[in-house]
Write a protein that binds this DNA or RNA. Structure first.
Lengths: 207, 73
DNA sequence: TCTCACACCTTTGAAGTGG
DNA sequence: CCACTTCAAAGGTGTGAGA
């Protein structure tokens, strides 16, 4: 019971590299922490790309878009709608630090967005992606041909391809709601190893 | 974000400006000549032995990441 | 609900040693 | 020069208190 790891648009195929982990979180409703100074996502998005023009240069951009127009609350068992959503803060994106690079470069290795950070600080100066707590979001990947990129990158411009994966959907929170999610994070995130009380953990996996 | 912090530490931490200049030079040439090394060192306020070691370590990092690329193809 | 200081980890990378 | 090691600094975890 896994959602497909592939997404094809206009001859370009993007594969969610760590699909199984995303699915494991997704089945329990993924939560991502927001902090004032910015928090990384875990799991983070790692893609494998094929079908690019090897010689052309691309800019890889990620943003996070609202799934719907609701605010949510955790009732102890599941997430349920609870009122209307705050207006989404537009214009915050994460440009992959290796951009721009050739199609050959992007296709030669998986592309990781582990440095992307989320914040709930609407006055953030660090350029992190601004989200609202207790709202539902979906990460998006945009492939922008570098030659067509202007000073302000147009994500809906010509030649731009956008990819999404339903299993990467998450609820933004300020503190974890579902204990199962907390446990998954502790089990898989190497930075949280200090909280693994089971000395012989059966999931020594990597991000 | 980077400061030229200095103290009595066993391990120096180079500033962002220093690292960027070293990185820029590395992109141009994986091996640095002795006169170039001395020039770059004084420009960045580093001992030229530090620049030498940096290039040495940087080449190692470059090789190890380059070898991973070969596995995929 | 949210924020902040911890304690506890990892990753990073300059410097050390030997070949 | 390379290979490998050494070992603190830098920085990412969830916690649990107190707003």
């Amino acid at each position: 019971i896994c959602l497909p790891a592939d997404c094809t648009v206009g001859g370009i195929t993007v594969t969610l590299d760590n699909n199984s982990m995303w699915n494991e979180f997704y089945h329990r409703s993924t939560e991502m922490i927001l902090t004032k100074q910015g928090r990384r996502m875990f799991p983070y998005c790692r893609y494998w790309i094929t079908g690019l023009d090897s010689n052309m240069k691309y800019i890889l951009v990620m943003d996070i878009s609202p799934v719907d127009n609701h605010r949510y609350k955790w009732n102890g068992r599941w997430w349920e709608p609870s009122g209307k959503a705050e207006p989404h803060v537009l214009g915050r994106v994460f440009i992959h630090p290796e951009s721009p690079s050739t199609g050959h470069y992007w296709m030669h290795q998986p592309v990781s967005f582990y440095k992307l950070k989320l914040t709930n600080n609407t006055l953030d100066q660090e350029g992190h992606i601004i989200l609202h707590s207790m709202h539902r979001y979906l990460p998006r990947l945009h492939l922008v041909p570098a030659e067509k990129a202007t000073e302000v990158i147009q994500l809906n411009g010509p030649g731009v391809h956008t990819f999404t994966f339903p299993q990467t959907e998450f609820f933004a929170v300020t503190a974890y709601q579902n204990i199962q999610i907390t446990q998954l994070k502790i089990d898989y995130n190497p930075f949280a190893k200090g909280f693994r009380d089971d000395g012989l953990n059966s999931k020594p996996q990597r991000d | 974000r980077g400061k030229p912090r200095r103290g009595m530490l066993r391990r120096a931490v180079f500033s962002d400006v220093q690292r960027k200049a070293l990185e820029k030079m590395f992109q141009k040439q994986k091996y640095i000549s002795k006169p170039d090394r001395k020039k770059l060192a004084s420009k960045l306020g580093l001992k030229d032995s530090q620049v030498k070691i940096w290039f040495q370590n940087r080449r190692m990092k470059w090789r190890n990441s380059k070898e991973r690329e070969l596995l995929s193809s």
